[in-house]
Design a protein around this nucleic acid. Structure first.
Lengths: 345, 345
DNA sequence: ATGAAAGCGCTAACAA
DNA sequence: TTGTTAGCGCTTTCAT
């Protein structure tokens, strides 16, 4: 129990067991041939002392760090935690471990976090989005390790990418809405110029509407606060301003849910009088009075595939440079459906 | 642009700038006296090459790692991300950086994650809960670094702790419910024997009810799935089984919200016929048709204080060993209030 | 203000 | 099967 405040080293275990440091090292890493006898002596000594290997030294000596840097914008909206779940599930079967960095959607912070993480010499990088500062891109290029950009595939990756086309997501939703016959369409979203994926969805959305000769009649943006409450407020604001609105496309499911709750309370016919759609396919929606129309962002899947790409690349296997997933619209109960279409649960 | 797949070293910068490695090191860390001239040459060379310092080597040489291990059960319920936010906010003003590990509420996984993180020799540990395996506790003790156990203060910490008393939270909610006159009380929660905090709340809750001569008349547990949807289902199940129930205490706000939506849809008078309360004080609640009664878990505050304790301890300052926060009940719109009481927003 | 030497705790490579 | 030697890339300490 003596504690000189210096943690134990291999040498301590070596002395306690009367075995060379090298052999102790081999035992602790299950490397090379070690006789069962010494093996047990070493393990006993290590356990007895409470030895915890020093990965810093190990990494420096072996030039290998089994860490994968995962860089995401936020932890507070359920989408990224789910990506992380996917990554963890895959990496659990490997030597690799994810380490998370958060950017708050700020390019400069992303750059800083990336620099910080690269300075630990990870085995790979998984990073959200395709938009980065020049410096960040340069670092990724120079790092010499596998890089997977996730979530979005509308652009050029540094190395590999896996995600969905948000532009296409916008296109498809617009098409479905037009087909259902809605014409006075409002867009409600976050005031986030730096959320490129939301921006791309919006662009895809308006493009397709334009082809149908329709323009978004109302827009409303928010920032901060409870998304559910904001959804409510924005919905009310839009409706007060323009009672003719017959569809509301929300940039995420949470505000969509708030909007839905508001409209139902007002006794408004959904989706007859007003249709609704969100984006993400969050699990939360399952408990709402109506199932909100939405489109899955394939979060779990993206995490898994990204992790697989890293894992393969690390073991030398060179694989898929670009994977684009193509989710379908979930119509739910808030978006009328073109009768000529079939299928979907 | 030549890439021999070996990352740059101090030596490369040294050669490129014609300055000794040592001086380069000093410049890059803003340490000691360096003439402005050499300083600029070094910085220019480093930038030109795209040098990223190797923290592995730095940490080994300096015996200092500016990482704080943060070990939490889950990322998927919004409570821990908020704790993380608090931690980050405080550590941002220091040299320290949080690194997160997730245990999924499994003691063995906690032990493994802890071992893994300690092997990187962090400067401190913030870990959720007071219940750990013997081995984990031993590691924490032997680590020789500051340890802060968070969320819960009903027990003995290894070192420091900051949180709330969940037992007391249960007590208080039970007292408020009894005072409001409810007598047929149901408990609805997670089927998680390893969620010690939920267990303690339940214990405190039943104890106080018992003192008032009341027993929980119905219990319902769930696991997995969408909490909102589960809240709905459980509420229906309880009510179908026992129509006399006049209060439902949920172990978290999310299932409470599901229950509320269900009851309102059924046209049941809340809180006249049936009262409701949850736990956590999640932001989400702001957007619901009624404000659910709850009690704040002080997540942000806990994160901040824990980080402050670590930061102080790291700089030698020895401080608070135990901090217990005492949130008050938020009555909202779903729990009648004893008329003799005053205050509260 | 700058440099040289030693070594942090481990592992790769080779020797025995 | 086990041990020895030489670093990994940096920082500490001590000289200059």
């Amino acid at each position: 129990m003596s504690n000189d405040n210096r943690s134990l080293t291999l040498r301590d275990v070596s002395e306690a067991s009367g075995v060379s440091e090298m052999t102790v090292s081999r035992v602790l890493r299950n490397r090379g041939d070690v006789s069962e006898a010494t093996r047990e002596r070493v393990l006993a000594a290590a356990k007895e002392l409470g030895y915890v290997p020093n990965k810093i030294a190990g990494a420096l000596a072996s030039q290998r760090v089994n860490l994968v840097a995962v860089i995401i914008p936020s932890l507070s909206n359920m989408v990224f935690p789910e990506v992380l779940t996917g990554i963890s599930q895959i990496l659990e079967d490997t030597e690799l471990q994810p380490v998370v960095g958060v950017t708050d959607y700020l390019p400069e912070k992303e750059e800083k976090v990336l620099y910080e993480m690269l300075s630990w010499r990870p085995s790979g990088v998984i990073i959200a989005g395709l938009e980065h500062t020049d410096a960040a891109r340069a670092m990724l290029n120079a790092s010499g390790i596998p890089v997977v950009e996730i979530m979005d595939t509308d652009g050029e990756p540094v190395d590999a990418m896996v995600g969905i086309s948000h532009r296409r997501a916008g296109h498809e939703m617009a098409a479905a809405i037009l087909e259902a016959g809605y014409r006075n369409i409002a867009f409600l979203g976050t005031k986030m110029p730096l959320d490129h994926r939301a921006r791309k969805r919006f662009e895809g959305f308006t493009e397709t509407l334009a082809k149908g000769g329709v323009e978004v009649v109302e827009r409303e943006f928010y920032s901060g606060g409870s998304a559910l409450a904001k959804g409510r407020e924005m919905t009310k604001a839009v409706l007060d301003r323009n009672p003719d609105v017959d569809f509301m496309y929300f940039s995420n499911d949470m505000i969509g849910a708030g909007g839905m709750l508001y409209l139902l309370e007002q006794g408004i016919d959904v989706p007859g009088k007003i249709g609704l759609a969100g984006f993400n396919g969050v699990e939360l929606l399952q408990g709402l009075p109506r199932k909100l129309a939405t489109m899955d962002a394939c979060r779990l899947e993206i995490g898994k595939i990204a992790a697989e790409i890293i894992a393969k690349r690390v073991t030398g296997d060179d694989s898929n440079a670009a994977v684009t997933l193509t989710p379908k619209i979930t119509f739910g109960d808030t978006l009328l459906r073109d009768p000529s279409t079939s299928g979907e649960g």
